[in-house]
């Protein structure tokens, strides 16, 4: 039940910012500081999402650290995001097997 509420809540707060510009007066130009703040959110959010959460993917923090490092390297080499995802999963599996 709580899951349905979460999904409904997420749906509402995701649709609102997409929908609001339809309603507000035409040619509203947001102040530049607001523009910059809104555009900075994804980078700040990604940082906060990655660390320290990545340390908790396994009881052994090294599993997250190694998977994360490999992901950084693969992404740095400009590989497609799906290869980055699978690379980190593969590394996590190997690290876990090696440490246990």
């Amino acid at each position: 039940m709580i899951l349905f509420l979460i999904i409904l809540g997420m749906a509402v707060v995701t649709y609102l910012p997409r929908m609001l510009p339809v309603l507000i007066i035409d040619r509203f130009t947001p102040p530049t500081w607001l523009n910059r703040w809104l555009k900075s959110i994804p980078y700040a959010a990604l940082g906060a999402l990655i660390f320290p959460g990545i340390l908790t993917v396994d009881q052994l923090p090294w599993v997250g650290v190694m998977g994360g490092l490999v992901a950084v390297i693969l992404a740095f080499l400009r590989l497609h995001i799906i290869l980055v995802i699978f690379g980190s999963i593969g590394t996590a599996i190997l690290t876990k097997m090696w440490l246990s």
Partner: peptide, 24 residues
């Protein structure tokens, strides 16, 4: 299950895969 247990790192792989190109 041995593979799927390790898939939760895939989330972080995705986040990293989005962030690194932006930083570059």
């Amino acid at each position: 299950p041995t593979i799927s247990e390790s898939m939760s790192i895939g989330l972080y792989g995705m986040f990293i895969g989005l962030l690194v190109p932006a930083v570059q």
